[in-house]
């Protein structure tokens, strides 16, 4: 019973140099902030905890750790076991504009060392942040250089660490967080199998399951031609579009952003039909289907009928096989593993 309990609470550490943008990104992804509003945020003192309910049985326990040297010193000494014990994911944020990159990396190695001591099975994600401040043509090269250097300092996590270039001003932030969340979901494989079946039944071109408050994608299923969709970043873009829409809704109707959820959204055109509807308590399902009224109506009914089965998945928590992962891969690559 105890293991089930712990499975639900996943501890996520958010660390990095002071002013790197940790709290800003947390506010945007989880608290409905608009990118330009984050300048109002003050410095984080010590650790700010937040619990985020995700996909019913997954509870994120996010530790936003203030990055000033005094606090970091404290984490590494007095609170070492308290902070670094039983961590599922460490997200370390580097500021691309930082002038003392070498010092940042030394800090990072200290933290990595503490992490490998207290929770060796944790997964490390590195976000190289504020990429918007770099000229477009230099971005890839600079990112690769920094990533190589940081990987060199990653010790025990050398082979498993993942890198993302992010910025709060575009959808790259959503891409990174989607990957992180995907890693944390305990029953992703079974959700995917079910989603795949649903997609076959309703003849959908694409199904995207996403969390409703954060608009982060949980997983998606793509069939047939849609794999050739030239917009490969469409999932992040849809996250970003929906988030913006939500903010605009709450701004102009006076409903608080947390509850400004639509029950359903339909878009019908001559080329495709698209609708978003609620699937489970915390998730919405976006479906892109061929342009036909019959298929559209049938799909809506079928999704309605499939709801209880997904709700079941929400509650039944099956521990995820530890070996399963390959976290860098796109989720669709894992459908085969579902039978295991």
């Amino acid at each position: 019973m105890n293991s089930v309990k712990r499975q639900k609470q996943r501890k996520v550490l958010l660390m990095g140099k002071s002013g790197a943008g940790k709290t800003s990104m947390r506010s945007i992804v989880f608290s409905n902030y608009v990118a330009k509003d984050v300048r109002r945020l003050g410095a984080t003192i010590d650790v700010e905890h937040s619990n985020i309910k995700f996909m019913g049985n997954l509870m994120l326990n996010l530790w936003d750790c203030g990055g000033q040297d005094g606090f970091v010193e404290n984490y590494l000494t007095h609170q070492r076991t308290h902070v670094f014990g039983s961590v599922a994911v460490l997200i370390f944020v580097f500021d691309i504009e930082s002038r003392e990159f070498a010092a940042d990396v030394i800090n990072y190695s200290n933290i990595i060392r503490a992490l490998s001591e207290c929770s060796p099975n944790a997964k490390v994600f590195i976000l190289i942040h504020k990429m918007d401040l770099v000229q477009t043509r230099l971005r890839d090269q600079l990112f690769a250089e920094r990533a190589d250097y940081i990987r060199g300092a990653s010790e025990g996590f050398k082979d498993s660490v993942d890198f993302f270039a992010t910025s709060i001003w575009d959808q790259s932030l959503y891409r990174a967080w989607t990957m992180i969340i995907y890693h944390l979901i305990p029953n992703a494989a079974s959700i995917e199998t079910l989603l795949q079946q649903l997609a076959e039944v309703i003849d959908a071109r694409e199904l995207i399951l996403y969390e409703r408050t954060t608009c982060l994608m949980v997983t998606h299923v793509t069939r047939g031609m849609e794999n050739e969709n030239p917009y490969t970043d469409r999932f992040e873009r849809i996250s970003s579009i929906l988030k913006t829409h939500k903010q605009s809704m709450s701004k102009h109707t006076g409903i608080p952003a947390g509850t400004a959820n639509f029950a359903e959204m339909q878009i019908k055109t001559g080329r495709f039909m698209f609708f978003i509807t609620r699937l489970t308590e915390n998730t919405n399902l976006a479906a892109s289907i061929p342009p036909s009224e019959q298929i559209f109506n049938a799909a809506r009914i079928n999704i309605l009928l499939a709801r209880p089965r997904f709700a079941e998945l929400d509650i039944a928590s099956r521990p995820r096989a530890p070996a399963e992962g390959g976290q860098g891969q796109p989720p669709s690559a894992q459908i085969g593993a579902a039978e295991a």
């Binding site: 809704m249 409903i255 509850t259 400004a260 959820n261 639509f262 029950a263 359903e264 959204m265 339909q266 878009i267 019908k268 055109t269 001559g270 609620r278």
Partner: peptide, 9 residues
């Protein structure tokens, strides 16, 4: 094209 958004509340 046509589109419709219904709100939850």
């Amino acid at each position: 094209a046509e589109s419709l958004i219904t709100m939850e509340k």
